[in-house]
Design a protein around this nucleic acid. Sequence first.
RNA 1: GCCCCCAUCGUCUAGAGGCCUAGGACACCGGCUUUUCAAGCCGAGAACAGGGGUUCGAAUCCCCUUGGGGGCGCCA
Length: 557
Amino acid sequence: MTDVRTRFAPSPTGYLHIGGARTALFNYLLARRLGGKFVLRIEDTDQTRNIAGAAEKLMEDLRWLGLHWDEGPQVGGEFGPYRQSERVERYRQAAGRLLDEGKAYYAMETREELEAMRAAAMKQTGGFRYRRPANPPSEAQARRAREEGRPVVVRLAMPERDFVVNDQILGDVQIGADELSDFVLLKADGWPTYHFAVVVDDEDMRCTHVLRGQEHLMNTPNHLALQEALGYRRPVYAHLPIILNTDGSKMSKREKDKAVRTALSAALKSNQIDEARARELAGVDGDAFDGWRAGETQLPADGLERLAREIAVVVPEIDIHDFRKSGYLPEVIVNFIALLGWSPGDGREKMTLHEMAAAFSLDRIGRTNAKFDRAKLLSFNLDACTAASAERNLEGLKDFVAVNADTPLRGLDDGVLRELIRSCAGFRTYRDIEYKAGALFVPDDRLRYDADAVRKNLLKSDGTGLKVLREIVSRLAQQQDWSAAALDALVRDFAERSGVGLGKVAQPLRVALTGSTVSPTISDTLHLLGRERTLSRIERALRAADSFSSGQGAAPR
RNA sequence: GCCCCCAUCGUCUAGAGGCCUAGGACACCGGCUUUUCAAGCCGAGAACAGGGGUUCGAAUCCCCUUGGGGGCGCCA
């Protein structure tokens, strides 16, 4: 029996998408389960869509997930090169063979002509198929046309018969000859199409199993026909169900634009931001911006991010990198997406990569599309973080900081990070830690005060909150032992002596110290902030509140 | 429009003709706990899309309808 070889073959158009990650994962798991090899191949045959550096980002995302490939870019292997852009000669050679054998032929319609043919056919029969003319252009005619600047492509002469895809998940799927077209092998620019490159490479790289998204199912007859024409072996096919958004639409990068677009419309209406500023943040010109606003285009990732931050909209995570930036653990992502379409069948849900590899099999992959439920992912991540060792959490939090250039947690030493992990226990993602404790590490003059929080906890009922602050500040000023335990005792003692509940002390303090009603337990908040900043922040809050009550201004900014 | 795939709680799923009064997880709802936010604890509700068959017996098999998804590129 030949060794099992699976592959993941993304095109470098951006970060690794969640759907792509699941495809990669299943290929990885199958290879591991069967003791085979997992190959990575970069499909960069569309020169107009390739994005510089995207392949490297993709590989970084795969590595972050722990999906290490046995062969491919950066690691090598005996069947390379593993980037299609470096294999163009190989495709031309294969095409030449098909041409010689009369299994492929030249075609020279322009895009406009093809579009017209397609439109006419759509109207008549509801489907367009390109069929080999009685006398396709000769080699010489093709050459002449090319010299004259006309587009010349090579198409496969599809056999006039039905094809059956023996799919490991879907069973036998029959596709009628009427549905098949003489598809393009080599484009006018001499580069191969996806269909062609895939078939040649899968053979060259000895791929035995092809696991890919169900959106490829209808492409498969093309690949089968090509394999037959070239005398190649036929890999085992398994088409995976598709991952959808909660609303049932296909989960795509567009979702991010959609979320920001909707939020921006509201923000513009409420004058939270003006259009010129929005456009500036988006970083595109007027026409491009209008096109985006109209829902026609997508914004560059960095512009979208700037805009989202400015209007404080939560952008849904779509790419693996988004989840990383949001503070998820890679092992959780991998576990969770495996469950989208697969289950071990014994009731287990929480599994490591290893455990999944041991349990994996094609016949336990489902046929129904799965909606991506972020709430469940969040819950998985919470459980994993709770169960993780202090070391793992430290590593995870540091990774979060590393990929978030603007986090206030940046630059903190490991000791503080550890304390944060402990005092924020119950966090669902590392971003929750930032949300809860970030204000502690913002420079005092950049601290933002939540107006509602100030009103409710400091100013209300004739300033009882402020009174507490004025009283406790002297106690704190005298305090030498700044350990959390000592501070806890201090606060409790203060509350008891004052005859008020802890909440009446903690909340005003919290608001004065952090500007909001959310922070770690008050003793941890004081401890983490340190003596000096605690005192300076309280002073600051008192000063600002005084000016407020004497009618001089609003809450401190 | 044409072709293909799919159909169990809101969501992910278990279920391969009797083990199903349909199990689990997340979410939701109610309660408890509580110095904030989370977290935690206890409890409840919640599904076989509809209609025909086959069978002693159907969530499981077949057909139709409906619904959802995918494809119909010199994109991958």
